[in-house]
Nucleic acid binder design. Structure first.
Lengths: 1294, 352
DNA sequence: CGTGTACGTATTGATATAAGTAATAGACAATAA
DNA sequence: TTATTGTCTACCGACAATATCAATACGTACATC
């Protein structure tokens, strides 16, 4: 019947499809050219003048040539077509983001420019001139002249870093740049030439001989950051230079130098040392040689962390300082110190006077500064050294089984990896040199290699090898996938790490500019000038794009997978057998039918990971700091000495970035900085006592409290018989998944804890700081990811304040309260909590004395923190007067349902305010209990009426049932979400039931209604926020379609607001487009972040209410932090949990209440509304009005008229365009135009005089769509609650 | 529809019900044309294979029921269980059966079950609640002659069910535990194209391989969806099974439908249980087995030694049942083979 | 000399992957008619 | 335009699908007018 052959079938199909396409086009054109009815009146003069361009738009849009500049980021350098990038001047100008009323702009083609700049840097640094010109030429098409000069100079700076670049050659390059790339040199360019003259062997005198104009010399010398400190002094020596050439900022140095000129004695500058410092982590001999054996405190220094070798001079200096400080202390203490029995914090604790402590802190800070510098400079070298050491140790022992030592294993891989990477570097360089290298096992095509070659070569093979191994091990520990990690994440992380390494080496280059090789007068002054000059440069190095990172990472990971092997053994009937298996291999996993790539780690490796010490191998940015972080003063900063962090964390949110940067530049963020700086300057230390207990249980490997057990394998359910019923099979699969999940999570948790504990161990006795930055709503987070005080119970128990505070009466009480709080007695009045602690003081003291055997503390709700308090209390009670005890423990004050507190303050609900403790009360209120009672009442009432389900639930509603739902209600949990939560509770409390969902449904309804009843006004506000977000995210900007080329989507307005401290918050939810990138491992999907792509309206709406509230609680926290800082309190916070010394709790409470009142005595929602009205004044809403409405007829008439004129249907772009023109004309200087504009009617202008929000329909059906200026509903009225009462509410935070 | 009444399998008692098409189709395509149904029944030629007196039919998602009723009229089964849980369908069938009670005394033996045909429990409950007498266990060597399963799984997400029912054939569980029970399945054509394809066909996938191993299958009919007949199907299947083509107009919703006969085959799940999980890895790319081996488990390159080149150089889509059995056997010989549990790949989502 | 055609290659878009979809309800976006 | 079908469902820190093939778009060589 069907004797069909395959290719025939396909041919037929193809033919048919082509036919279809053709007819579709025909239909389309016939519709498009169909003009409207012919009896339409012609538009007014002005209107038709504006309509004219619209006709053309129509014609050009169909065959609009997409500028090939859009393709730059998906091309390698081989495929660049500089001649094809012709961009109109207007399209190169900066454009606005969401609103023109905000002075925040984006640069069109920014991604393309950044991509090109990165390549420019690479080619310049490697002296690929032709390629450099090619790139610069491409850039010249995208940027303005000023920027081009800037980029060209950047390139030249990189080129002249090569000492073989003689000045003549540099000049030739500049000439060519001018010729091919329209580059225009400026003084900076000249400064670069000058630098090359000085540095790369030119004739300085001849140079100046040609340059007679003193003023231009002055201008050139002003570029101190280009010339560098050392070179500048050489220039000063030139006979052609006199005082008239010296710019103002250098004048003083110059005079100073000339005055004290002496023959330069060449010395090694310390900064130069940094570059190639060889730090052998484990070689202590050197230090021993330098320090006399009996030197005071040698052992103190030896105690130091991370196997760092302290700088001998500094170490000696430091120890002698300590010696001086502790001179007054008892002999015994001094001996202890001398014997190295005390760590830094122990010593600190022994000090008796403030003066001693201050001096000690200063000495330690100076010493730590050096150590911090070492840690940061050493970077990954530390890892390598550690590996090498362990490897050699193993060899010495003759231990050939590397499996035992992860580090030795790594060293083996490292050695094998290097040649592969080196080979690849060669291939890359050959490619860049246009050399053809034939290699038979090189399967990578030139095209693919061209994408990553410019970047891969930026980091040396040995470093790249270390980074690759480290990243893979780290990612694996981060958990997630069973026995492995997401490949996409892995390749990007490796790429990112490579980039980071490249960047920090660049920073070292900058340091080099500041070095002075001779001892001359004014050298430090000169350094400062250079540093200032460098810092004042506004340009930032652009980041590598993700595709590049991914490609670079992909290459390296594929190499590692090829060489990393692990030895495996197995017993068989023929005796043991051995084999080498890959340590990492790539595979796919499936999730709901979708596949994703995974890098799996061999079980043999995986097993050892949670037991390996990684501290030497952690990147410095991921560790706490030893010194106070640099205070925040601009968008970047706040972290270590050689790395920058952004003020606000962003995940692909250029708009957020732009807004915050703009605010920072305008100086609006000082208060935010102040708050953050308080958080950053809080000094911590590790609680050694708790650590030792944790360590004990950790090493036992059994499950204990929050410590997961060491598991050999998952506990799989028993095997199923083959003919088991499908439903049984399903359950079995679920059970298997669960087993795997438990196993996997336990293992990755152990890995995670291992990281935390290893870092903690390293930092015992140290003084440490956590620099913080913000999420986009302003909430603060410590930057170091592994170990910080935000963690769970166990992690939190590891921290103490560095500084101590004598308890005093109240402090002792608060310490007791802290015990009660962490024990779980946190809902009772303060007096009862104190009583609780007093009643159990013996237990607490016993727990502290013998925590391993006396387990009272383990029964606490937060046992580890309870233990921590026990230690503190025990010490206090060991004194004759416990109130004299100097306490280091942070005591917490937590907001009771902080989100609801803010809502209640905004809404002014009295009952709501009572329930979240805004209103003073002698007992703390518990909102969960209260809601559960409300639910109870409702249920009971229904039960009275004989409602079956209600009767079932009668008098059975517990606090726990409603807790999660009340909590998540603030986050906008939906009915379905709440249903799931309550179902879990119902199942737990009442057992699972066949038709349990009917019960659950009923109960959920009751809970929802009860919450709404209690926080009525709060909910009105929540609704208001949601509605505002909805209108914004669905609005259309008047400027839509203004730029023809840069794809701004129709709905692209994000919800943006400013916190009371001036931080702009931009909700980053957009629908990002994706594209995939081929790597050597697999294809990887990469999203193209954009600040102009379509808004994810749903997320904008759902996210705004909680985000706004969180921005308020963040504000409250920062205000409190600032004030605490001013009052000299140590302060730390976890969002809505504020910490300080026990003795200072009263003071802190006062401050935080005051600040809350201060925050809420303004009408925040009204302010928000005003801000919205201002910001979105150029936004319009698409509303659906009834077909019969008069306005409909008016607008239809106008559209018809226009359509006739432009001979096509009127689009929304046209409507906005016409309105834009009308509004422009209204602002015109020509009174005639203004007059005409007043008479002119557009589809939008006729809306004026109506309030379409009043008669629009929610649904699109049988309606006409119009554009109306956006309006925001009036702010709901506040309730009666007076927020000032909070000042007296003791349980507000408790 | 004037001559409809003359069709062999058309039950005149139900005529008035089929004059009007259903308001909703609940995302399923179904036959609305009696002539087409008749042709399909002719093609199936079931009558000689069953004895009315002993035959039970389980009919999942009959929809508005034209085909079901004609099948019923053709075979006159002892029981004809209709399972559906959509409002319209429930109402329709209840009135239909009521009408039959008053006209023919329901000699058609329809029983309508208002349960979800998706749920396994629905089927076991048929026996539990004695809607059906216990089905006899029969040999897997010949077609079961007392139970017939008919189902319409033409919805967009129904492909999963077909896949699962194929798995049931491999496990010989569920209704397949009674023996070689014939299933007449309406499924999306795209599903049939994939699942029925033979080794080497572009759409061949893991389930197609399973079908090959564990079932006997036949493509009975296809809907006329494109102008090129049989476009998208494996030509070998078309040639082998000679499916009839059903006119586009005979369908409600769309004609992207295939009618497939499926029954448990000679192999069972333990044939390749050891590598079943790993198969998904093979089917990821178009690379050869040789290239794919390292991806299935650490050190699996070892298997190169145990397999002939001709298999090693095949792509996953080209494996025949024989090949896969050989691979399974070789895997069994590998000393370092991971346990089944260890190869259990679970996505991140499942881990949380 | 220009033009048209055929062929080759890069880019884009569609589709498949696995194989219980729990169940609830309401809004909203996308797609089909 | 309207009706039906599909999607999603709690905020942030936080982290994501890939492989393949057909069809289109684009580019180049070549032939023939």
């Amino acid at each position: 019947m069907l004797g069909l052959n395959r290719s025939l079938l396909q041919k037929c199909a193809r033919a048919r499809l082509q036919l279809k396409a053709k007819s579709a086009i025909r239909e389309h054109t016939s519709i498009a050219t169909n003009p409207g009815s012919s009896t339409i009146p012609t538009p007014s003069l002005f209107a038709s003048r504006f309509l004219q361009p619209l006709k053309e738009i129509n014609n050009t849009r169909d065959n609009l040539v997409v500028n090939s500049a859009n393709k730059i980021t998906s091309s390698s350098y081989l495929d660049l077509l500089p001649d094809a990038y012709e961009i109109e001047e207007s399209d190169r100008e900066n454009k606005h983001y969401t609103s023109k009323t905000d002075d925040v702009t984006r640069k069109p083609y920014e991604r393309e420019i950044n991509y090109l700049r990165n390549m420019l840097e690479s080619f310049s640094a490697e002296s690929f001139f032709e390629r450099t010109f090619q790139i610069l030429k491409s850039l010249s098409k995208l940027v303005n002249q000023e920027e081009l000069t800037q980029f060209g100079n950047r390139s030249l700076e990189a080129i002249t870093r090569d000492p073989s670049m003689k000045p003549e050659a540099v000049k030739k390059v500049i000439k060519q740049m001018e010729e091919f790339c329209k580059f225009k040199p400026d003084e900076r360019t000249e400064a670069i030439v000058l630098k090359s003259v000085v540095q790369n062997g030119g004739d300085l005198n001849a140079y100046f001989a040609n340059l007679k104009d003193r003023r231009s010399i002055k201008k050139i010398l002003r570029n101190t950051d280009v010339i560098g400190a050392d070179n500048m002094f050489q220039i000063f020596d030139s006979k052609d230079i006199d005082i008239s050439c010296i710019p103002g900022e250098l004048m003083e140095v110059y005079k100073n130098y000339k005055l004290n000129q002496q023959d330069g004695e060449v010395v090694e500058d310390t900064i130069k040392l940094q570059q190639n410092i060889e730090i052998n982590a484990l070689d202590k001999e050197n230090l021993d040689e330098l320090l006399p054996v009996d030197s005071f405190g040698l052992k103190v220094v030896r105690h130091s962390l991370l196997g760092l070798k302290p700088n001998p001079e500094l170490a000696v200096h430091f120890t002698s300082e300590i010696e001086e400080i502790v001179a007054d202390l008892g002999e015994e203490t001094r001996k202890e110190i001398k014997d190295g029995k005390l760590n830094y914090h122990d010593i600190y604790k022994r000090l008796q006077t403030d003066e001693q402590r201050t001096t000690y802190d200063e000495a330690l800070e100076a010493f730590n500064m050096e150590r911090q510098r070492q840690i940061e400079i050493r970077g990954i070298e530390g890892a390598k050294e550690k590996w090498k050491h362990d490897f050699e140790e193993a060899q010495k022992r003759g231990d050939l089984n590397l499996n035992k030592s992860m580090n030795a294993q790594c060293y083996d891989w490292y050695q094998k990896l290097i040649p592969l990477i080196e080979k690849e570097h060669e291939l890359c360089k050959a490619l860049l040199n246009d050399e053809k290298v034939e290699s038979k096992d090189d399967i990578t095509t030139a095209k693919e290699r061209a994408f990553y070659a410019p970047f891969l070569i930026k980091v040396g093979a040995d470093k790249a090898a270390v980074i690759t191994i480290l990243e893979l091990l780290k990612l694996n520990a981060s958990g997630g996938t069973y026995g492995g990690m997401r490949a996409a994440k892995a390749v990007e992380s490796v790429g990112r790490a490579i980039e980071q390494e490249f960047r920090s080496s660049n920073l070292a280059n900058q340091e080099y500019k500041m070095s002075v090789s001779r001892k001359v007068a004014g050298s430090s002054q000169m350094k400062n000038i250079v540093r200032k000059s460098i810092d004042s440069l506004e340009e930032e190095d652009p980041e590598w794009d993700r595709a590049t990172r991914t490609r670079v990472g992909g290459v390296l990971i594929s190499f590692l997978m090829a060489i990393a092997k692990v030895k495996v053994r197995k017993q068989t009937s023929n005796g043991p057998i051995e084999d080498y298996h890959p340590a990492f291999y790539h595979g796919m996993q499936f999730l709901g039918g979708q596949r994703f790539g995974v890098i799996k780690v061999h079980n043999e490796i995986f097993k050892h990971l949670s037991g390996t010490s990684f501290i030497e191998t952690i990147q410095p940015q991921s560790l706490p700091m030893l010194v106070k972080p640099r205070p925040w003063e601009s968008f970047y900063g706040g972290t270590g000495l050689y790395s920058k962090s952004p003020l606000v964390r962003m995940k692909d949110a250029p708009e957020t970035e732009a807004y915050v940067k703009a605010a920072a530049k305008r100086g609006n963020l000082q208060e935010v900085f102040d708050g953050l700086n308080v958080l950053g300057t809080t000094a911590w230390t590790i609680n050694k006592k708790v650590f030792d207990v944790i360590s004990h249980y950790w090493n036992k490997g059994d499950e204990f409290l929050t410590i997961p057990p060491v598991l050999e394998s998952a506990k799989f359910p028993p095997k199923l018989s083959p003919d088991a019923d499908p439903s049984e099979r399903f359950d079995h699969a679920k059970a298997t998944i669960k087993a795997v999940r438990e196993f996997s999570s336990s293992r990755s948790q152990r890995c995670d804890y291992n990281y935390k504990l290893e870092i903690a161990r390293g930092f015992i006795g140290e003084k440490l700081y956590f620099p913080h930055n913000l999420d986009f709503r302003g909430r603060a987070y410590p930057i170091s990811p592994h170990l910080n005080h935000l963690g769970g119970d166990l992690t939190r128990s590891l921290f103490l304040f560095w500084e101590g505070k004598e308890l005093g009466e109240r402090g002792l009480e608060w310490l007791k309260v802290q015990l009660a709080n962490v024990y779980g007695v946190d809902k009772a009045p303060i007096s009862e909590r104190i009583q609780f602690a007093t009643d159990h003081i013996e237990e607490a003291i016993k727990s502290a004395k013998d925590p391993l055997n006396h387990k009272w503390w383990t029964k606490a709700e937060k046992p580890w923190q309870a233990l921590s308090v026990c230690f503190e209390l025990a010490e206090a009670y060991a004194l004759p007067d416990p109130t004299k005890f100097v306490s280091y423990l942070p005591v917490h004050q937590d907001g009771t349902c902080n989100g609801l507190q803010h809502y209640a303050a905004l809404g002014g609900d009295i009952e709501g305010a009572n329930q979240v403790n805004l209103n003073p009360s002698d007992r703390p209120q518990d909102v969960y209990t209260f809601v559960s009672k409300l639910v109870q009442n409702r249920v009971n009432a229904d039960a009275e009426k004989g409602h079956d389900i209600a009767i079932f639930f009668k008098d059975k509603i517990k606090r726990k049932v409603v807790k999660q739902t009340v909590m998540t209600n603030v986050y906008g949990v939906t009915f379905v979400g709440a249903l799931a939560q309550i179902k879990k509770q119902v199942a737990q409390h009442f057992g699972e039931d066949q038709d349990g969902h009917i019960y659950t449904k009923y109960l959920t309804k009751q809970v929802f209604e009860s919450i709404r009843e209690l926080f009525e006004n709060a909910h009105l506000i929540q609704d208001w926020l949601g509605e505002a977000a909805k209108r914004i995210s669905k609005s259309v900007s008047l400027d839509y379609g203004e730029t023809s080329n840069n794809q701004v989507e129709l709905h692209s307005s994000a919800v943006i607001w400013t916190t009371p401290l001036g931080l702009p918050c931009v909700q980053p939810y957009r629908v990002n487009k994706h594209h995939s990138v081929k790597t050597s491992v697999q294809d990887v999907l990469i999203s193209n972040p954009s600040g102009t792509s379509t808004i994810d309206s749903r997320k904008q709406q759902a996210g705004f209410p909680p985000n706004f509230i969180h921005s308020l609680d963040a504000t409250h926290m920062l205000m409190t932090a600032t004030n605490c800082g001013e009052s000299g309190l140590q302060f730390a916070s976890v969002h809505d949990s504020f910490w300080t010394h026990a003795a200072n709790i009263d003071a802190m409470n006062e401050i935080l209440r005051e600040q809350f009142v201060r925050l809420h005595t303004q009408n925040l929602v009204q302010i928000l509304r005003d801000e919205f009205v201002e910001r979105y004044q150029r936004s319009y809403q698409i509303l659906h009005i009834p077909l019969t409405h008069e306005l409909t007829h008016k607008i239809k008439a106008i559209k018809k008229q226009w359509a006739t004129s432009i001979k096509r249907a009127v689009t929304i772009t046209d409507e906005l365009y016409m309105e834009r023109k009308r509004l422009e004309m209204l602002q015109s200087n020509n009174p005639e135009e203004v007059e005409a504009a007043k008479r002119m009617e557009t589809t939008i202008s006729v809306v004026d005089g109506y309030n379409p929000y009043e008669f629009c329909q929610p649904i699109k059906r049988k309606a006409y769509d119009i554009l109306a200026p956006i309006q925001f509903p009036e702010v709901p009225p506040k309730g009666q609650f007076d927020v000032r009462k909070v000042k007296d509410s003791h349980y507000f935070f408790s | 529809m004037s001559q409809v009444a003359n069709l062999r399998s058309y039950n005149p008692a139900l005529k008035k019900f089929f004059d009007k098409l259903p308001r909703f189709n609940y995302g399923k395509s179904q036959l609305k044309n009696p002539e087409a149904c008749q042709l399909l029944l002719d093609k199936l030629n079931l009558k000689p294979q069953y004895n009315s007196a002993n035959l039970d039919i389980i009919d999942a998602t009959p929809g508005f029921g034209l085909f079901s009723s004609m099948l019923n009229h053709e075979l006159r089964p002892r029981n004809h269980i209709l399972i559906d849980c959509h409002d319209e369908t429930i109402k329709r069938w209840n009135t239909q059966i009521k009408t039959l009670h008053s006209t023919t005394g329901n000699k058609e033996n329809f029983k309508f079950v208002d349960r979800d045909p998706f749920s396994w429990a629905t089927y076991s409950n048929l026996y539990k609640h004695e809607l059906l007498p216990p089905t006899k266990q029969q040999s897997y060597d010949k077609m079961h002659d007392e139970l017939l399963v008919v189902a319409n799984w033409t919805g967009t997400k129904d492909e999963a069910i077909i896949a699962q029912w194929i798995k049931c054939c491999s496990h010989r569980n569920w209704l397949m535990k009674f023996g070689k029970v014939r299933m007449i399945l309406f499924m999306p054509s795209s599903t049939a194209m994939k699942f029925l394809s033979e080794p080497g066909f572009r759409k061949r996938n893991r389930t197609a391989l399973r079908r090959d191993l564990y079932t006997d299958s036949k493509l009975i009919a296809i809907g006329e969806e494109s102008d090129v007949l049989g476009e998208g199907y494996d030509p070998r299947v078309l040639v082998r099974d000679q499916p009839m083509v059903i006119d586009k107009a005979a369908f409600i919703r769309n004609a992207a439908v295939a009618i497939v006969e499926l029954s448990p085959g000679k192999h069972t799940s333990d044939a390749i249980a050891n590598i079943d999980h790993l198969l998904s890895t093979f089917f990821v790319t178009g690379a050869t087995l040789r290239e794919q081996l390292p991806k299935i488990a650490a050190g699996a390159e070892y298997l190169v030694k145990l397999l002939p080149d001709e298999i090693l150089d095949k792509k996953a889509g080209e494996f025949t049942t024989d090949d896969i059995l050989k691979i399974s056997h070789a895997y069994e010989q590998w000393p370092f083979k991971p346990s089944v549990e260890e190869t259990f790949d679970i996505g991140e989502e499942a881990i949380r």
